[in-house]
């Protein structure tokens, strides 16, 4: 897979490490045990478009949010990750 980095252009996916679903950016309040359990352990795990976090470990060490089709591996969108 080639990831079209918004700052660096096309880079091989092997330069990146993968964290998982981009909803991990939205961390709930840790006082809410049920919500926190769901946040850490449960996943939508879709067959199709998936927004996910990739870390450019062998590059500029930026975090990216990539929209990728898990059925075809086609990447349709690459953005810099931001806290929302």
């Amino acid at each position: 897979m080639i990831i079209n980095h918004p700052l660096l252009g096309p880079r091989d996916a092997s330069e990146f490490t993968y964290l998982g679903d981009a909803s991990l950016l939205m961390r709930p309040n840790s006082d809410d045990i049920d919500a926190y359990h769901d946040y850490i352990h449960l996943r939508d795990n879709p067959d199709g478009l998936h927004r996910e976090l990739w870390f450019h470990e062998q590059g500029d060490r930026s975090w990216l949010v990539i929209t990728r089709n898990t059925a075809t591996h086609e990447i349709t969108k690459v953005e810099l990750a931001r806290k929302t």
């Binding site: 449960l42 996943r43 939508d44 795990n45 879709p46 067959d47």
Partner: peptide, 18 residues
């Protein structure tokens, strides 16, 4: 490997990634 997409039809989220 299809656990996620099949159990989603029952409205369940699982502690699983494919």
């Amino acid at each position: 490997g299809s656990s996620g997409r099949v159990m989603a039809k029952a409205g369940l989220r699982l502690p699983i990634e494919s």
